[in-house]
């Protein structure tokens, strides 16, 4: 399923957080959003998973405006991992994953169980099913939330900095899980090397606008990184794999 963001604008307290952003995620591709803190990535993603209604523009799934769709119908097509963690209620992992079934109609308990079991098996959290979600490690929590998103059986997945607070192994693990899902993915990422390695296409956002887009290595050029992030970047070839990695210093 194809995701189009058409001229989305978000205003809060008379300032424009997001201004006329246009981007497209083709069916089955993994598109990354990068940009400094406060650039509007999360705000844009909140418009996509309908936590926020944009002041202008539209978010379309295969041409249908998600804000005009019935909320549950939209949730059947699009799942999200928001960047929030509430810790008031001690749900088990199985219960958290089962929440992914909420938007579906005509459900039976047996089918729900099968879908959730499959989602948990795919993300490797089946053995945690009866554990309390709050007692899990950060990496386990993200896997469980991905399982919940998969239990939603969506065709598009939106991730807001899914690798935050994770060690390097878990960062790689979470992104390869997402890639293996085969869904259309739009993700905000902080780590530029990670973004370059996993995304087919990158959009660089600064001050609420798209300032560059394209394949990662065309986009992540030292001049742009100096302007947007205020850092000096050195492209270096990985001695083993040959992939280009970026090393960073502060600008002199």
């Amino acid at each position: 399923m194809r995701l189009d963001i058409e001229g989305v604008t978000v205003e809060a307290a008379k300032t424009r957080l997001v201004e006329d952003i246009r981007l497209t995620v083709d069916s089955g591709t993994f598109v990354g959003l990068v940009g400094p803190n406060g650039s509007g990535k999360s705000t844009l993603l909140r418009c996509v998973y309908r936590a926020l209604r944009p002041a202008g523009g539209a978010v379309r799934l295969d041409g249908d405006d998600v804000h005009a769709l019935d909320p549950r119908a939209a949730a059947r097509s699009l799942a999200a991992l928001p960047q929030e963690s509430s810790a008031e209620f001690d749900f088990t992992v199985a219960e958290v994953v089962a929440m992914g079934r909420l938007p579906h109609r005509g459900r039976t308990a047996a089918h729900d169980r099968a879908v959730c079991a499959d989602a948990m098996a795919r993300t490797g959290v089946a053995h945690l099913a009866e554990r309390g979600f709050l007692a899990l490690s950060g990496g386990e929590k993200q896997r469980v939330l991905i399982a919940r998103a998969l239990a939603q059986q969506p065709r598009v997945l939106v991730l807001d900095e899914p690798t935050n607070h994770l060690d390097i192994a878990h960062q790689l693990d979470v992104l390869s899980l997402v890639r293996a899902s085969g869904l259309t993915v739009l993700a905000a990422l902080h780590d530029l090397n990670l973004a370059a390695a996993h995304c087919g296409l990158l959009y660089v956002i600064d001050g609420g606008r798209v300032v560059a887009s394209g394949p990662p290595h065309d986009v992540l050029q030292p001049a742009l990184l100096a302007e947007v992030f205020g850092v000096r970047a050195h492209p270096v070839r990985h001695p083993g794999t040959g992939a280009v990695q970026l090393l960073f210093d502060l600008l002199p």
Binding site: R46, Y49, R50, A51, D70, P71, R72, A73, A74, A75, R76, L78, A79, A80, L81, P82, Q83, E84, S85, S86, E88, F89, F91, E95, V96, M99, G100, L102, P103, Q152, V158
Partner: peptide
């Protein structure tokens, strides 16, 4: 009960699950 579960997890999670 199910929307309440989603609400207990957070407003953004609820939105993503189709609960307003």
């Amino acid at each position: 009960a199910e929307p309440l579960n989603a609400l207990a997890m957070g407003d953004e999670t609820s939105s993503a699950l189709g609960v307003r």
